[in-house]
């Protein structure tokens, strides 16, 4: 933790909103990114990220300065998103990133590359959304935030062995979903190019 950060935390504990604003400025991107990966759309991600910062501000006195502030903050955001997903109790599909809705924009430089990137992003998000909330959080922290298993365990209040087993199960599920998607896409391609039956 930088000296500035420790100072901002200390000032925010004593009611300085401006100091907490610096912390929001610094951590908005990782918190928003986590919420986006967890919830699958920008509107819910914005709401969850804002609420996570509000919760962090309210409970700032409970923060242990010996722990990483980023881990503590991402822990709050992860738990908030997990609760939100469980309350929905509905299958969650990313409405912003459905592959069918992606259209190559001819006005941008290299539209094919942009299109391919958007398709890949949509595919990743789609696969992630099929995981259980806690497994999803573990995968997001591992891949996008490069957290170790120990850090994930700390953030999600799990044991290290539980994190290992969740990551194992999540990777298995992701690989199966990916292979199923690939088989489907190959079958679709074959159907398109095969000769029509007479």
């Amino acid at each position: 933790m930088s000296d500035n950060e420790a100072l901002w935390i200390n000032q925010a504990i004593h009611g300085d909103d401006h100091a907490f604003g610096f912390l929001v400025e610094r951590y908005q991107k990782p918190v928003f990114s986590l919420c986006y990966r967890m919830l699958g759309n920008s509107r819910d991600a914005e709401d969850a990220a804002q609420e996570s910062f509000i919760r962090a501000y309210i409970h700032l006195k409970k923060y242990d300065p010996h722990r990483s502030f980023a881990t503590w903050l991402l822990s709050i955001a992860s738990h908030y998103c997990i609760d939100k997903i469980r309350k929905r109790q509905l299958p969650i599909v990313s409405m912003e990133a459905l592959p069918d809705e992606i259209i190559a924009d001819r006005n941008v430089p290299n539209p094919e590359a942009k299109f391919s990137e958007a398709t890949r992003e949509a595919m990743i998000q789609d696969l992630i959304m099929k995981l259980k909330p806690l497994d999803r959080a573990a995968v997001i922290l591992r891949y996008w935030h490069e957290y170790s298993e120990v850090e994930i365990a700390e953030a999600l209040n799990l044991s290290v062995s539980a994190v290992k087993s969740r990551l194992y199960r999540a990777r298995q599920a992701l690989a199966e979903s990916y292979l199923a998607l690939e088989r489907l896409s190959i079958a679709e391609e074959r159907r398109l190019y095969e000769s029509p039956t007479l």
């Binding site: 604003g21 908005q28 920008s42 914005e46 992003e121 992701l174």
Partner: peptide, 24 residues
């Protein structure tokens, strides 16, 4: 999957996130 995950870019919030937070 590993390649796709590691090459994937993290989405950013809309500008003015901190101001919206202060208002909230």
């Amino acid at each position: 999957l590993d390649q796709a995950f590691f090459s994937s870019t993290a989405p950013s919030p809309m500008p003015g996130f901190t101001d919206r937070f202060q208002a909230r």
